[in-house]
Write a protein that binds this DNA or RNA. Sequence first.
DNA 1: CCCTCGATCAC
DNA 2: CCTCATATCGAGGG
Length: 363
Amino acid sequence: MSRIIFLIDLDSFYAQCEQNRNPSLKGKPLVICMYSGRTETSGAVATANYEARALGIRSAMPIFLAKKKATPETVFLPADGEHYSQISEQAMQVFARHADVLEQVSIDEAYLDVSKKTNESFKKAEELAKQIKKELKQELNLTCSIGISSNKLVAKIAASFKKPDGLTIVKPEEIRTFLNPLKVEKLHGVGEVTTKKLNELGVQTVQQLSKFPVHQLIEVFGENKGKLLHNMSLGIDDSPVEETKEKQQFNTIGTLKADSNSFEEISPQLKDFARKLIDRVHEKNIFFKTVSIILISNKLETLTRSKTLEKETNELNVLLKTSEELLKEFFKQNPEMKLRRFGLRVSNFVEQKKQKSLFEFGN
DNA sequence: CCCTCGATCAC
DNA sequence: CCTCATATCGAGGG
């Protein structure tokens, strides 16, 4: 029962979208930015196209730093999320036509289980991947990178192996050889902190990780992550490609005009965010039980405070009152703490209670 | 098993 | 002086 899994990644997606609606941008370094609105250049890079990456500009980089690296012809544009979402939906529809199961993991990435469609043949899988690339180019003028293997873990790494417009196939018998020489940080879920800890244990490569005693990994990283690291090092990942599921939380966060420890100064933003979240709650016809405030200090520490309600709700007033209380209580405990950013979250969603029909009532 | 909160990851 | 949104884990306390 071997599977064939694709991970498809749309290349520097936001930049491609912008270049398609304004072809004069083609060939130039292009940087798509999330501006925080505090100063002219405060914010971060969302996407840099390959010409901009050649200048050393990377996503998540502060905009002012990107500007230092930019050449005169470099173009900076604000992100237009609405537009990218629309294009993303169309791309996902192309993928869906060719998948047994489609799991969208972000605006520009999706896993496809194509085991049945390809009759478990990697030869057919390669043809299918080329067909998807062709349709994506013809219909939306987009390029993508595709990784193919027998599980999600390896498909994901394979997709990053050659970019942009790449296609990398790793058959089951090639997995160990493919993974062994890679640095541990190539594994999904191994970021800066985990890499540092592993390096301190003398583990740099996936091969070294595979030889490291699993019980010791569990001691250092806990039950779940320890086992996960061990399995990943062996190329083992049985997690299924699952139809994209409903979100379990909504949050929205923004940067304050100036650092503040005043409830009154933050209140307007709180109200604005509460309305935004309630709109989404109503759209999806759901109820939430937990309200959180998200606080980021001027020292960039993240704090959260939350309250779980007695009863689920979808009311603006309840959200407002609860989050206001949380924020007031926070400042009472931490009067000196200046906040740079502030946000709200609703979570712990409950299925909407349907009215029992009269018919059901009697039974 | 539930709640709270911080940490980590990665888009 | 560094965006925004989501999921998952673990510890600590019920």
